[in-house]
Design a protein around this nucleic acid. Structure first.
Length: 204
DNA sequence: AAGGTGCCCAACCGCGTCCTT
DNA sequence: AAAGGACGCGGTTGGGCACCT
């Protein structure tokens, strides 16, 4: 599981061991994130910078939530995927403690089937009547439109969004006007009542 | 008990974007 | 403006596990 790189140093690959996790965690907590190539060198880990970044981001970061998705999370993923397509980082950004990789895996293994079966059995549950074969913005659409197209003053104006809705500005990086979900003391997830998601997207 | 099969998920890869020089 | 490195994202792979037969 080791790969020779640049003819001199070896890069370890495969599953991370607890000792490696500990080393990386300690190092990042002490020195901070960023400069991953440097981290991999200085920490003594025989891992590539990319591997270190991924491990930190998907597993070691504080507040990472693991375990099964709640029904609310599932529903939000389905709605967001319908809206954004495979933009996992954006979707994960709306799910506190969840990573893009986790959301992506969860979609591919659970919701992909569920979504298509709901399509067939619709109407049922929230938004079930509106599942279509195509997300509003598939990867192909995004690529052909080009990300950040029509950027003005830091606000990305998405023509694809305008095509699907009745024309309003949408900041991809902030993600608004998608709903934030909030943590309540009983740890249930609820839609932010300040944001009437379905008012903007009645199709969902 | 042993082998086969399918599923899940952690990790890797390639590419595009951003940032620095 | 161009080049090179770092970073981030989405697609894909493959190891490990559970469940049959």
């Amino acid at each position: 599981m080791e790969q020779k790189t640049e003819g001199k140093s070896y890069t370890k690959r495969g599953l991370w061991k607890p000792e490696e996790d500990m080393i990386l965690k300690r190092y990042v907590e002490t020195h901070g994130e960023g400069n991953w190539a440097d981290i991999s060198r200085r920490s003594g880990l025989k891992r590539g910078g990319k591997s270190c970044r991924l491990r930190w981001k998907n597993y070691l970061r504080p507040n990472i939530k693991r375990g099964s998705m709640s029904p609310q999370e599932q529903d939000l993923i389905i709605r967001m995927h319908k809206l954004l397509g495979n933009r996992w980082s954006l979707i994960a950004g709306r799910l506190p403690g969840r990573t893009d990789n986790e959301v992506k895996n969860y979609w591919n293994t659970h919701l992909n089937k569920k979504s298509s079966s709901r399509k067939q059995n619709a109407p049922e549950s929230i938004g079930a009547s509106t599942f279509t074969d195509k997300p509003v913005m598939s990867t192909e659409v995004r690529r052909s439109h080009g990300e950040g197209e029509g950027e003005e003053n830091g606000v990305v104006r998405n023509t694809w969004m305008e095509e699907e809705t009745n024309s309003f500005d949408y900041d991809v990086r902030v993600g608004s006007p998608l709903p934030l979900i909030s943590h309540y003391p009983d740890s249930t997830l609820v839609f932010d009542p300040c944001f009437a998601f379905t008012d903007f997207f009645p199709l969902l």
